[in-house]
C-alpha cells in the first residue's frame, strides 16, 4: 500500500507538470544553454541526421560517447532519461527476442544492436538540443532562420499555456473522480483500475477542448490590441526582437571542437 502511494505520488499530474516545466525552462545556466540557437540547430542537423549514413561501429560508438557527454552537460531531467532508456530497452529487447525466436544468431543480433545505437545517438542529440533551449530561445532561433513569426510565436505561446492547460485538465480529471465510480475490485494485476483510469484520462480531454476554445477569444483580442499581428510582418520589429542573438566565441569553439572530434573519429577508423 505504502509503495503504491509513493508510486502514485510520482505519477501524479502535478508531478508531470513540474517535470515538464523544468525540462522546458529549468536549466538555462548550463554551457549548452548559453549557446546561440543557430549553433544548436547546425549541431543538431549533423548529429540528428549523420548516424543514419554511418555504418562504422567505431565511429558510432564514438558518437554515442560524445552524446552521453553532452547529455550530462545539458543536465537533462532524470525522468526524461528514464523514459528514453525504457523505450530503447523495450525496442531492443523485443527485437532481440524476435530474432532469437525466428532462429537468428549473433549475426542477426549485431545489425539490431547497431540500429539501436543509431537511435540512441539521435535521441540523445535531440534531448541535448531541446533541453538546452527554452521555448523562447527556440522560437527566437526559428524566427532568425526565417520561419514565419506566427509559427515561432505559437511555440512560445504553447508553452506559456501548458501549465494552465495541465492544471485545468487535472481539475476536470478530478471532477470525474469525484463523481464517477471506481471499480469495486482492482482486478487481476490492477487491470480494472487501470482501464478505469485510462478511460477518464481520455474523457477529460473533451471538456478541456471546449473550455479552451471559449477562453481563446480574450487571448486573440488581446493579441490584436497588443499589436502582435502588426509585428509578424514588420522586419524592424524582428530585428529588435532578435538583437540579443549574438554569435560569440563560445559558439565557434563548440562547433570547432565537435567537428574536430568527429574528424578524429573518422581518422581513428583507419587504424582499426
Amino acid at each position: 500500500m505504502e509503495y503504491t502511494r509513493k508510486l502514485t505520488d510520482k505519477l501524479s499530474v502535478e508531478q508531470a507538470k513540474i517535470e515538464l516545466l523544468n525540462t522546458a525552462y529549468g536549466n538555462d545556466q548550463t554551457f549548452l544553454a548559453k549557446l546561440d540557437p543557430r549553433t544548436l540547430f547546425i549541431w543538431y542537423l549533423f548529429f540528428g541526421l549523420a548516424p543514419w549514413f554511418i555504418h562504422n561501429d567505431t565511429v558510432l560508438i564514438g558518437l554515442f560517447a560524445f552524446m552521453v557527454l553532452t547529455t550530462i552537460m545539458a543536465k537533462v531531467s532524470p525522468l526524461i532519461i528514464f523514459i528514453l532508456c525504457l523505450g530503447l530497452l523495450g525496442q531492443g529487447g523485443y527485437l532481440l527476442i524476435a530474432a532469437l525466436f525466428f532462429g537468428g544468431g549473433i549475426s542477426t543480433i549485431m545489425p539490431l544492436v547497431m540500429l539501436t545505437l543509431k537511435l540512441s545517438i539521435i535521441s540523445l542529440a535531440s534531448i541535448t538540443v531541446f533541453c538546452s533551449m527554452d521555448p523562447e530561445k527556440l522560437s527566437d532561433g526559428l524566427l532568425k532562420i526565417g520561419v514565419p513569426g506566427q509559427v515561432a510565436f505559437s511555440i512560445s505561446y504553447g508553452y506559456r499555456m501548458l501549465p494552465s492547460l495541465l492544471e485545468e485538465y487535472h481539475h476536470i480529471f478530478l471532477s470525474f473522480r469525484l463523481r464517477g465510480k471506481a471499480p469495486e475490485k482492482h482486478g487481476f494485476l490492477y487491470i480494472r483500475s487501470i482501464i478505469y483510469f485510462i478511460k477518464i484520462a481520455m474523457l477529460s480531454f473533451y471538456p478541456l477542448l471546449l473550455s479552451t476554445a471559449k477562453r481563446s477569444r480574450t487571448t486573440v483580442e488581446a493579441l490584436e490590441t497588443k499589436g502582435s499581428f502588426y509585428a509578424f510582418n514588420n522586419p524592424k520589429v524582428k530585428a529588435i526582437k532578435l538583437a540579443h542573438l549574438i554569435y560569440g566565441p563560445r559558439d565557434y569553439i563548440f562547433l570547432a571542437l565537435s567537428l574536430t572530434y568527429v574528424i578524429s573519429l573518422f581518422g581513428l577508423t583507419r587504424f582499426y
Binding site: Y25, P135, E136, S156, Y157, Y159, R160, S164, R215, S216, T218, T219, A222, L223, K226, S228
Partner: peptide
C-alpha cells in the same frame, strides 16, 4: 478573465 490576456511566459 485577465489570465487569458497574458501571452508570454515571463
Amino acid at each position: 478573465d485577465f489570465d487569458n490576456q497574458l501571452v508570454r511566459a515571463r
